[in-house]
Design a protein around this nucleic acid. Sequence first.
DNA 1: CATATGTCCTGAGAGC
DNA 2: TGCTCTCAGGACATAT
Length: 276
Amino acid sequence: MPELPEVETMRRGVLAVIGARIRDVQRTRCARRPISIAPLMPAFRRRTRGRQIVDVGRVGKRVILQLCSEDRIVIEPRMTGLVLLAEPPTAEHLRLRFLLDGQASELLFWDRRGLGCVWLMSPAEFQQRLGEHKLGPDALQITAAEMSARLSSSRRPIKVALLDQRAVAGIGNLYASEILHLAGISPQLACNALRPKHWRQLQQATLEVLQLAVLHEGSTLSDGTYRNALNQAGSYQNHHRVYDRAGQLCQRCGQREILRIVQAQRSTFYCPKCQK
DNA sequence: CATATGTCCTGAGAGC
DNA sequence: TGCTCTCAGGACATAT
């Protein structure tokens, strides 16, 4: 589930690795299946051992470790991946261990479901895979005009379109519902039916929801999977307006129950009174 | 080109 | 109690 707020929390949580040198990388034996890394382990080790980490960034839902060699380590948590400086939740699902020589002695990638992956990319590969033609503007940076320009000709429902990383980078299934509730826009409204006023409301709501979620270090759902870099839960789940609240009274109008519908094989939650 | 669907994966929870 | 089944949704490949 990690979306922009969770991944940004991971990034902030591992800033202490900046300046550290990578002594070694180990694929852990405990993993049932080896983690998907590219290139293969021997080349991955050869190009990372001895390199200094000079910056930690984020592109959409990925954490980026910039190396002094110009290569970048790209960590994609996907559904259940975690980037940790502390002990992992279980030893069983630890996938990758970076041994460091800095104030942080190791950085871990843990992933219960194993859908996550790690890449080592040259500048050219980084541009090719994560460049502007692959990912839209970051959801914290995008303007209302950019949102409108990228989506307003689409026939898709706005909720489905918000999940398209080529349009806007960083929004996933949970925050799409939260954003649309704050904006007062129905998830079923087609993009090409939104007026300029809607795009302004949507951009404003996107910023508000994601910034607040970052302040709360993301959402740890009932399965407890998501944790910050110190293996601590986030708290934005206590502020959810609609997500996973089907049947509960809408906090805004207090009159209608939150509904759950399915769009593009994903759950959507909304208030039929507050969102038109 | 735009949009829709299928696939990977594990563990929680439902239902019998 | 203990089994089987469904579902959760990141990104991408393939189909329409």
